[in-house]
C-alpha cells in the first residue's frame, strides 16, 4: 500500500512540499519527518501543494498544527495551495481557514512570502 508520497522542492527561499495520495494516521509520520527536517535546516517558509492529495485525516491535519507555531515564531509560515474541494471541506469543517492561508495556486502562495521580503 504505497499510498502516500511527500516530495520537497525549493522555490526561491520557499520550501514547497508536494503531498500525494492518502494522508492518514499511517502516513502522517512521513510528513512529520519532512517538517522536522525543515526545522533542522532552518527552512521556515513552507507551501504545501495539495494538488495530488486525495484524502486527509485528523492525524494528517495534526501535523500542520504541530509545526505551524515554530514556523511562525521564526518569521515563516505554512501556507496551503491547490487543494481539491473534498480535501478543502475537511479543513473548512474543522475551522482551519481562520488560521491558515489557502491559495488556489502554488505560485500565489509562494509569492505571498516574497512580498513580505
Amino acid at each position: 500500500m504505497a499510498d502516500f508520497n511527500v516530495n520537497l522542492r525549493g522555490v526561491g527561499s520557499v520550501s514547497v512540499i508536494d503531498v500525494k495520495g492518502y494522508l492518514d494516521a499511517h502516513t502522517a509520520p512521513e510528513l512529520e519527518n519532512m517538517f522536522s527536517k525543515l526545522i533542522v535546516d532552518k527552512q521556515f517558509k513552507v507551501v504545501v501543494n495539495f494538488d495530488q492529495l486525495n484524502y486527509i485525516s485528523s492525524a494528517g491535519l495534526g501535523v500542520f498544527m504541530a509545526f505551524v507555531e515554530q514556523m511562525r515564531d521564526n518569521k515563516g509560515d505554512i501556507k496551503f495551495s491547490n487543494m481539491n474541494d473534498s480535501v478543502y471541506n475537511i479543513f473548512d469543517l474543522l475551522g482551519f481557514p481562520v488560521l491558515y492561508e489557502f491559495y488556489k495556486d502554488e505560485k500565489e502562495a509562494v509569492n505571498k512570502f516574497s512580498n513580505l521580503g
Binding site: 499511517h26 502522517a28 485528523s58 492525524a59 494528517g60 495534526g62 501535523v63 498544527m65
Partner: peptide, 26 residues
C-alpha cells in the same frame, strides 16, 4: 483510521505522537 493504525504499532512514542496529532488536528 486510528483504530486500524494503533493496533499495528509497538513503539509507545509513536502511539503518543499519533494520538496528539489526531487531537490537535481535529
Amino acid at each position: 483510521d486510528l483504530s486500524k493504525e494503533f493496533s499495528g504499532i509497538l513503539e509507545i512514542e509513536v502511539i503518543g505522537k499519533l494520538l496528539v496529532y489526531s487531537i490537535i488536528g481535529q
